[in-house]
Simulated assay, not measured.
Amino acid sequence: MLSRVMPSNVEIKAKVSDLPHFSEMAAQLSQSEGTIIRQRDTFFNCSQGRLKLRDFMNGSGQLIFYERPDTDGPKLSRYSISPTNDPQSLRTVLSDALGIKGEVRKERRLFLVGQTRVHLDTVEGLGNYMELEVVMRPEQTVEEGQQVAEDLMEQLGVSKESLVTGAYMDLLLKGQEDA
């Protein structure tokens, strides 16, 4: 069997309390107004990592598998992605085979700052969050990626107290348990 290195990124997620301010800072750093992307992520039961189908609500989507630790602060995420032109039928097949863990609907504003994807997300049922995804270059160490993320976090005014662990799906499921 051929082994391959999965692409990786260093990711930080945090709650955003001042949406206009964060949006303005991200726009300045990226020198753009950002791109709006509507997404519906369906998470499926799987034995390791996370498997989600991202539907862009325009007839296209991506099946994404990823693994990363549930800790706050910068963390390494390894992933693989397969594009699809029929997210609905793929959702049906995966739902029948694995069962659905849950669904996350969000409007994402994407800004690009150097090698980092800055996401400003409004998540149904959760509120406003930001994600930094430092897309790692093959020669970069995890520590270098973490430094890029921490520097950008500082430039965007994101406090360590606002950091969150886990995926939006986890936060939604936890909210249902607490209710």
Rank of each mutant, 00 (worst) to 15 (best):
residue 93 V to W: 03
residue 36 I to Q: 00
residue 69 P to W: 03
residue 66 Y to V: 11
residue 66 Y to P: 03
residue 71 T to H: 08
residue 92 T to H: 09
residue 65 F to C: 09
residue 43 F to C: 11
residue 45 N to S: 09
residue 80 S to I: 14
residue 99 G to A: 05
residue 55 D to C: 11
residue 61 G to Q: 07
residue 96 D to W: 06
residue 55 D to L: 14
residue 46 C to W: 09
residue 48 Q to W: 09
residue 31 Q to R: 07
residue 73 G to I: 14
residue 32 S to P: 00
residue 81 I to Y: 03
residue 82 S to W: 09
residue 44 F to T: 06
residue 74 P to E: 08
residue 68 R to I: 14
residue 81 I to D: 00
residue 49 G to M: 11
residue 45 N to V: 12
residue 84 T to Q: 06
residue 71 T to Q: 14
residue 32 S to V: 02
residue 34 G to V: 02
residue 93 V to N: 00
residue 48 Q to D: 12
residue 58 N to F: 10
residue 68 R to A: 15
residue 39 Q to M: 04
residue 81 I to S: 05
residue 90 L to S: 00
residue 93 V to Q: 02
residue 55 D to G: 05
residue 56 F to Y: 11
residue 81 I to Q: 03
residue 88 Q to G: 01
residue 38 R to N: 05
residue 36 I to G: 00
residue 67 E to P: 01
residue 70 D to P: 03
residue 56 F to P: 00
residue 101 K to N: 02
residue 72 D to S: 13
residue 100 I to S: 00
residue 52 K to S: 06
residue 85 N to Q: 13
residue 90 L to H: 02
residue 41 D to V: 08
residue 76 L to Q: 15
residue 51 L to Q: 10
residue 53 L to N: 04
residue 44 F to D: 04
residue 49 G to E: 09
residue 73 G to V: 12
residue 64 I to T: 11
residue 54 R to Q: 05
residue 70 D to Q: 12
residue 69 P to G: 07
residue 67 E to Q: 14
residue 64 I to L: 15
residue 77 S to A: 14
residue 79 Y to C: 07
residue 58 N to W: 05
residue 51 L to Y: 10
residue 46 C to N: 06
residue 68 R to K: 15
residue 60 S to Y: 05
residue 88 Q to P: 00
residue 31 Q to P: 00
residue 33 E to V: 02
residue 83 P to T: 09
residue 56 F to H: 09
residue 58 N to C: 14
residue 94 L to C: 03
residue 40 R to W: 01
residue 67 E to R: 11
residue 57 M to H: 01
residue 47 S to T: 14
residue 56 F to N: 08
residue 39 Q to N: 00
residue 41 D to F: 08
residue 70 D to Y: 07
residue 92 T to L: 12
residue 94 L to I: 07
residue 51 L to C: 12
residue 84 T to I: 08
residue 67 E to Y: 10
residue 70 D to F: 11
residue 74 P to Y: 14
residue 100 I to R: 01
residue 38 R to P: 03
residue 32 S to C: 02
residue 69 P to K: 13
residue 36 I to V: 12
residue 70 D to W: 08
residue 89 S to T: 11
residue 93 V to R: 01
residue 95 S to E: 15
residue 54 R to K: 09
residue 70 D to K: 13
residue 48 Q to M: 10
residue 31 Q to M: 01
residue 54 R to V: 12
residue 95 S to Y: 03
residue 39 Q to P: 01
residue 51 L to D: 08
residue 92 T to E: 15
residue 79 Y to F: 15
residue 63 L to R: 04
residue 31 Q to N: 05
residue 99 G to H: 05
residue 37 I to Y: 00
residue 89 S to K: 02
residue 46 C to G: 07
residue 93 V to C: 05
residue 34 G to Y: 02
residue 98 L to S: 04
residue 54 R to H: 05
residue 53 L to R: 04
residue 55 D to E: 05
residue 87 P to F: 04
residue 45 N to K: 09
residue 87 P to V: 06
residue 72 D to R: 11
residue 76 L to Y: 03
residue 66 Y to M: 13
residue 46 C to E: 04
residue 42 T to P: 04
residue 39 Q to E: 09
residue 93 V to D: 00
residue 78 R to P: 02
residue 35 T to Q: 10
residue 86 D to V: 07
residue 84 T to R: 02
